[in-house]
Amino acid sequence: MTPQETARRIIHANNYLTLSTADQAGRPWASPVYFTPDGGLDFYWVSRPDSRHSQNLTARPEVAIVIFDSQVPVFHAEAVYLTAHAEQVPDADLPPCTEIYRSRLPELTIFTPEHLQPPNPLRLYRAHATEASVLLNDAGPDLRVPLDLPI
């Protein structure tokens, strides 16, 4: 399996990513969020604008993301690492982006564009990957391999 194929498998096998943000002063914050991938370049999640990670995005849209299975045995880890630019999805982009987000699981069909606008409390967010790598499980020391985008 190529590194690109391994990365795709990891992304599609996991429902949560760890989103790492920083506030205006550079203090880091990491949050697990349920996500839907879109072609290996964009990653969508729903959150409250007043959550710490959402507020951090307003100050600093640059984020780091890791996607991995925390249940694998020790020394069998694989992960996808991303550097990305994140934002709240603008209202004009909500219809197509909401369809993408909703496409992963039937439970997500409750999220309509209207559900993700005021006065409702949740918004749709998107991270656009600018750099990616994969941690390969090769039974040796950590081996991170750069990836071409889209994954």
Rank of each mutant, 00 (worst) to 15 (best):
S51H: 15
A92V: 14
V74A: 11
T83E: 12
T109E: 04
R52P: 04
R60W: 03
E107A: 14
P106G: 08
S54G: 12
D69Y: 09
A77V: 10
N15M: 10
T21G: 04
L82I: 03
Y81E: 09
A86I: 12
Y34W: 15
I67R: 07
G26P: 10
N56W: 00
V74L: 09
F68A: 14
N56F: 03
S20F: 01
L19C: 06
R27D: 08
P106S: 10
D38V: 00
S31E: 12
H85G: 08
A13N: 15
R48M: 08
T36V: 12
Y16T: 11
W29Q: 08
T18G: 11
R102T: 13
T21A: 07
P106T: 12
R9A: 11
R8K: 11
R60F: 02
V80K: 04
H53R: 11
D42E: 11
E5S: 14
P61F: 02
A92T: 12
P61L: 04
W45Q: 05
V66E: 10
T109M: 01
G39I: 08
R48F: 08
I10D: 09
A84R: 02
I11K: 03
A13H: 11
T36A: 04
R9I: 03
A64F: 08
E78W: 02
L105E: 09
A30K: 01
R8C: 06
I100H: 00
V66Q: 12
D50M: 03
L94C: 06
W45P: 04
T6L: 10
L108N: 10
R27T: 10
T21N: 05
I11Y: 05
R60E: 10
R104L: 11
T58D: 01
I110L: 12
I11Q: 00
T18C: 13
E5L: 05
S51W: 05
V66Y: 09
E87L: 11
A64D: 07
W45S: 03
T58A: 13
S70T: 07
F111R: 02
V72A: 02
A7V: 09
R60N: 15
Q24P: 06
I100K: 00
D91A: 14
C97K: 14
L82T: 01
P61K: 02
P32H: 11
V63S: 01
V46R: 05
D50H: 14
R60L: 07
Q71A: 12
L17H: 01
I11L: 13
S70R: 02
H76E: 07
R9Y: 05
H85Y: 11
P90Q: 08
T58L: 14
S31Q: 13
H85P: 00
H12P: 00
S70K: 05
Y16M: 11
D38G: 02
R9T: 14
R52I: 13
A86P: 07
W29I: 05
T58K: 10
A92F: 05
L17S: 03
S51D: 14
D93L: 15
Y34K: 07
S70W: 04
R60T: 09
P90L: 04
